[in-house]
């Protein structure tokens, strides 16, 4: 009754489940930040559990925190993580997608929480990774901004990219696969409680 899933190209996987069911942990395991106790992560036929590096260059992870420096401007915050190119047009496009272009030279400490989130999300477009791992991407976003995010995801998938995200608020994507972690969490599923007792654990 273990958790097992496969993600094809251009697909979207939505992680659902109540608070504490392990959505964030699963995303962190997928990103390689958290080492799984058991199980493995296969990326294009290679085992990425032992060497997260081969996997990490294809993913972009956005967690609960936005990794924004308040004293830097919006543009400086963006260029730092996506590297400086000769022309900054794709950075401008990334900002534009999330309606952040007018705020380009604003110091980030003046941004509202929704605007900060949009700045974090525009990094997705600037870095051009294949798989997006988003943990509650829509937190703090208004309805119009969620639409922008949905558009961005749709465009990303149309070019062969995939996305995995955890969310509580509805984000509309085409033909999503849904995974409800409630069914796999020992906290919510009594049948699982005794499963991990076969080999007694230490801590």
């Amino acid at each position: 009754m273990g958790l097992n899933f496969h993600l094809a190209e251009s697909s979207a996987l939505i992680l659902e489940g109540p608070n504490g069911s392990g959505k964030s942990s699963l995303i962190r395991i997928l990103s390689g930040l958290l080492r799984p106790r058991l199980g493995s992560l296969i990326w294009q036929g290679q085992d990425a559990t032992k060497e997260p590096e081969i996997f990490q260059e294809h993913i972009h992870y956005i967690g609960h925190r936005n990794a924004i420096k308040p004293v830097l401007t919006v543009q400086e915050n963006l260029t730092y993580w996506s590297g400086r190119d000769k022309d900054d047009t794709h950075l401008d496009m990334a900002l534009d997608q999330f309606n952040m272009l007018p705020l380009k030279n604003t110091p980030a400490n003046l941004l509202s929480s929704g605007q900060s989130r949009r700045l974090a999300l525009s990094r997705l477009l600037a870095s051009k990774r294949k798989l997006w791992l988003l943990d509650e991407p829509s937190v703090g976003l208004d309805v119009a901004s969620i639409k922008l995010l949905e558009q961005a995801i749709a465009e990303h998938r149309s070019t062969g990219g995939s996305v995995i995200f955890a969310t509580h608020s509805p984000i509309e994507v085409e033909a999503p696969t849904k995974l409800n972690l409630r069914d796999y969490s020992p906290l919510y599923n009594r049948a699982l409680i005794n499963l991990d007792d076969e080999e007694e654990s230490w801590v």
């Binding site: 990103s31 390689g32 930040l33 990490q56 260059e57 993913i59 992870y61 967690g63 609960h64 925190r65 936005n66 990794a67 924004i68 420096k69 993580w81």
Partner: peptide, 16 residues
């Protein structure tokens, strides 16, 4: 500390 608190450190670990 600041990088740890604002999430920059996660991005640093995941960066190339």
């Amino acid at each position: 500390l600041a990088d740890y608190e604002d999430g920059s450190l996660e991005q640093l670990v995941l960066s190339r």
